[in-house]
C-alpha cells in the first residue's frame, strides 16, 4: 500500500499522520496477549496494554472508521446461521468428494447491495470460510464478488447460491446497521 499523502496548500505533499494508537486495536491486541499468557493478572494487563501500544506505534495502520452499531440478537442469529452453514456445507462437500461423478462448478457474480468496503470484506470472508465457495475476484468499483462454487449443475442452482449469498449480506446488515451519522464515511 502506498503511503497516504496530504497535499499542502503550496502543492507539496507530506505523508499523512494518522493517530497510530487506536483504542479498539489496543484492546484487541491486549486480549490476544492475555490469551497467549492464559491468565489475567494486573501485571499482565498493564504489560499487554504497553505491548499493544508499542505494536500500534511501530506498525501504524490507517484508522478504520467503524460507523455502525451492533444488534446483539441479530449478531447471534448471524453467527448461529453461519455455524449451521459451515456444518452443512462441510457435509455436502464431503459427499461431493466421495462420490464417483464428475463435478461441475460455476463462477458466480454476486452484486452486493451495500456499498461499504467493510461489509464487502465481511461477506467475502464469511463466504470463503464456508466450504464450497471461494472468492476468485472482488471488484471494488461495482461491489461485485466473483465466487467459484462447487457442485453447481444448472442456472437454477446458480441463482439459488446467489440468493443465499445476498441473504447472508442481509443478515450482516441487520447485525451491523449503519449509524445514521456515519453513512457518508462508510460508503
Amino acid at each position: 500500500m502506498s503511503p497516504v499523502l496530504h497535499t499542502r496548500r503550496d502543492g507539496t505533499t507530506r505523508p499523512a499522520r494518522h493517530r497510530a494508537v487506536q483504542p479498539p486495536a489496543v484492546a484487541g491486541l491486549t486480549l490476544v496477549w492475555l490469551a497467549l499468557w492464559g491468565d489475567v493478572t494486573p501485571l499482565l494487563l498493564v504489560g499487554g496494554v504497553l505491548v499493544a501500544v508499542m505494536v500500534c506505534l511501530v506498525f501504524p495502520l490507517p484508522p478504520l472508521h467503524l460507523s455502525f452499531r451492533v444488534r446483539p440478537l441479530a449478531l447471534v442469529a448471524l453467527v448461529g446461521r453461519f455455524i449451521v452453514d459451515v456444518v452443512r456445507a462441510s457435509v455436502e462437500v464431503s459427499s461431493v468428494v466421495l462420490r464417483r461423478r464428475q463435478v461441475s462448478n460455476a463462477v458466480v457474480a454476486v452484486d452486493l447491495e451495500s456499498s461499504s468496503d467493510l461489509m464487502m470484506t465481511l461477506v467475502a470472508s464469511m463466504l470463503s470460510l464456508v466450504p464450497g465457495s471461494v472468492v476468485v475476484e472482488a471488484r471494488r468499483s461495482t461491489h461485485t464478488l466473483f465466487l467459484h462454487v462447487i457442485d453447481v449443475r444448472d442456472e437454477e442452482a446458480v441463482e439459488r447460491f446467489r440468493q443465499e449469498a445476498l441473504a447472508l449480506e442481509q443478515r450482516l446488515l441487520r447485525a451491523f446497521p449503519a449509524r445514521a451519522t456515519g453513512q457518508e464515511e462508510a460508503s
Binding site: 500500500m1 502506498s2 499523502l5 497535499t7 505533499t13 499523512a16 490507517p62 472508521h65 464515511e185
Partner: peptide
Amino acid sequence: DVDADSRPDEQIEGDLR
C-alpha cells in the same frame, strides 16, 4: 504489483477513510 495504483493520491486517501 499491488503498489501499482495509478489513481491520484487524494482518491486513494478518500477510499481509505
